[in-house]
Write a protein that binds this DNA or RNA. Structure first.
Lengths: 135, 135
DNA sequence: CTAAATGCAAAACCTTTGCCTCAAA
DNA sequence: TTTGAGGCAAAGGTTTTGCATTTAG
């Protein structure tokens, strides 16, 4: 079992106490915390960690493709562990983020870009929805 | 021919000189200007317009569904005239924004949301691509 | 005339950075 | 030991806001 710390070492990252805390925190989060949330959770564990370190660390982890930035339109960068393509559906009534993967959608994006004369190198998709009443 | 000013009046907006300038400027823009660009273009026409008025006006126009915000990941809000569903493909090499509409994609988004138990009330999609060499 | 809009400057946010100190390898 | 990392506080960039003044309707 290759854990997240090993992956950081493989990526050539120096593992400091602060980094370990931040990384494990994102690893174990089951939501999509923004930087301030990560900060507040981190100082619960070690209250000497600074906001600047959070920013520097997430930016590093993102470059190493270990975490991914998620932007859901609230003006704040949120992060999640990188674990392959998936998209987000945001519940507009409570902000809950639901993940999904849809192969057909992935293909379609590639095809659209190709038809327009581009190689697809990235994308961003968020759906905003409201829960349907079951009937 | 219902022009953009008429639409503003229908929406109940008071038409000031500043608003007229800002609105017509966005109406006639063939790119996706950010707030600062709108500001610079506006003061070329009337140098008493303030940045605050640009922000207040675009926010008003957006609420009235007369313009739409486009976020292409550069951290700045860009605006375009509301003119029905379409998506954006950003050329990562030069920032050019290409628009497209793809019916199949629209349907697919609706279907995905529905299958997840949601009514789709909005979405955001940007593709990032690099021009293919013709061969 | 009167409510609403503007200008200006200050403040509010989120994020980045300089610099000196501290710690991982 | 040495180079990179962290803490702190200041600065940066975008957007919002308070308040006195002006203006559209």
């Amino acid at each position: 079992m290759t854990n997240i710390i090993d992956k950081c070492l493989e990526a050539g990252l120096r593992i400091t106490n602060q980094r370990r805390i931040i990384i494990e925190l994102i690893d174990s989060a089951d939501d999509h915390p923004d930087v301030d949330t990560i900060y507040r959770r981190a100082i619960d564990i070690d209250d000497t960690i600074s906001l600047a370190t959070i920013y520097r660390t997430v930016s590093l982890l993102e470059q190493a493709d270990l975490i991914e930035k998620v932007e859901v339109g609230d003006g704040k960068a949120r992060y999640e562990l990188a674990r392959g393509h998936h998209e987000h559906l945001v519940d507009v009534d409570n902000g809950d983020i639901h993940e999904f993967y849809h192969a057909e959608l992935e293909e379609l994006k590639e095809k659209i870009a190709r038809d327009m004369g581009f190689e697809l190198v990235g994308h961003r998709l968020e759906l905003f929805g409201r829960k349907l009443k079951p009937n």
